[in-house]
Amino acid sequence: MILGACSAGVFAVAHLNASKPAVPAAHKSRPSPPAATSESAQGSRPPTALPSPPPPRIPRRGAGTFTSAGGSSEAVGHGRTLRYVVQTEDGSGLTAASVAAEVERVLADERGWTTSGVAFRRVEEPPYDFRVRAATPDTADALCAEYGLDTQGELNCNVAQTVVVNIRRWILLSPQYAGRPADYHAMIINHEVGHFLERGHRGCPGPGMPAPVMMQQIKGLHGCVANPWPYDRLGNLVTGPRVYP
Rank of each mutant, 00 (worst) to 15 (best):
P21E: 04
V23Y: 02
Y84F: 15
P54S: 03
V23R: 08
V76D: 09
T65G: 13
P24V: 03
T67V: 10
A75V: 15
T37G: 12
T88E: 15
R80G: 01
S73G: 11
P47M: 01
A75T: 15
S29K: 01
R83P: 07
A49D: 07
Y84K: 14
T37F: 06
T67S: 09
A96S: 09
G79T: 08
G77N: 09
A69Y: 12
A49N: 05
A97N: 02
P59A: 04
E89K: 10
E39V: 11
K20P: 00
S32D: 08
P54V: 01
F66A: 11
T67H: 05
G77L: 06
V23A: 02
T81I: 11
F66H: 12
R60F: 05
T48M: 03
T88G: 14
P34Y: 06
S73K: 12
A26L: 07
P34K: 07
E89D: 12
A26K: 05
K20G: 00
V86I: 14
Q42D: 01
P31H: 00
E74A: 15
E39R: 12
A69H: 12
S92W: 05
P31Q: 00
P51C: 04
R60V: 09
P51F: 03
T88Y: 12
G91N: 15
L94A: 10
A75Y: 10
G62L: 02
R30Y: 00
A25H: 02
G64R: 06
S29R: 03
P47H: 00
K28Y: 13
A35V: 11
T48H: 04
P21A: 07
K28E: 11
V86Y: 08
P56Q: 04
P51Y: 03
A36T: 09
P21F: 01
P54F: 00
A41E: 15
S44K: 07
A97T: 06
T95V: 04
S52P: 04
A96Q: 02
P51E: 08
G93E: 13
T95M: 03
A41G: 13
S32F: 08
H78A: 15
T81L: 04
P24R: 06
E39I: 10
H27T: 08
A41P: 02
G71W: 08
G62R: 00
A25R: 05
V23K: 10
A26F: 05
H27E: 11
P21G: 03
A49W: 02
T65C: 11
S72V: 09
R45W: 06
